[in-house]
């Protein structure tokens, strides 16, 4: 009985393996992929920068090197690579700077966290400041009197003269 079971398992494994291999063979037999259009290439190139042409996206850069990169993207698409695989490939070869946005990892999180954090902090400061400004004016006047000591000679003289005019 146990032997029979083992044979059944073996049969299933062989069948599955066969299925996988034949499926792969059928997939490869789909024939050549259609040539990717320029628009498909540009859709990927738009999110990339070559390390030489500063601040010019790859899809619009006219240098020979960038034309070759676009051709390479076309070739990779033709070979069946996905968009992400193409980004990864170029990043591995030339570093993070080829990507239009820093990947969300490590130190790069700073750029994604800092601006919203600063905005929220600004909003909180504004809110607290506003509540403070809403305090009765007498309290503020007290604060003003405290700061009188810091006034310079000119202001004191001016206020003196204004009082005299009254």
């Amino acid at each position: 009985m146990r032997k029979q079971k083992r044979w059944i398992v073996l049969l299933v494994v062989v069948l599955l393996a066969g299925l996988i291999f034949t499926a792969g063979a059928f997939a490869q037999d789909d024939g050549p992929r259609p040539t990717p259009s320029d628009d498909e290439v540009n859709a990927i190139a738009r999110n990339m920068y070559c390390p030489v042409c500063e601040n010019i996206p790859l899809d619009v850069c006219g240098t020979q090197a960038c034309i070759q990169w676009r051709q390479q993207i076309k070739d990779l698409l033709e070979e069946g690579w996905t968009e992400q695989q193409i980004y990864d490939y170029f990043e591995e070869l030339y570093g993070e700077r080829v990507l239009a946005e820093p990947p969300r990892r490590g130190l790069n999180w700073l750029i994604y966290i800092l601006p919203p954090a600063a905005f929220v902090a600004g909003a909180i400061v504004l809110y607290r400041g506003f509540r403070n400004w809403q305090k009765p004016i007498e309290e503020m006047e007290d604060a003003a009197v405290e700061s009188e000591a810091g006034k310079d000679e000119y202001v004191s003289r001016l206020e003196e003269e204004l009082k005299n005019r009254q």
Binding site: N47, Y49, A100, P102
Partner: peptide
């Protein structure tokens, strides 16, 4: 070294557009 690579990164238009659009 994995964090401070010394490599320059690119901050392209998509970042700015997404971050400033709502503002």
């Amino acid at each position: 070294r994995a964090t401070f690579t010394g490599q320059k990164v690119t901050v392209g238009p998509s970042y700015y557009e997404r971050a400033t659009g709502p503002l």
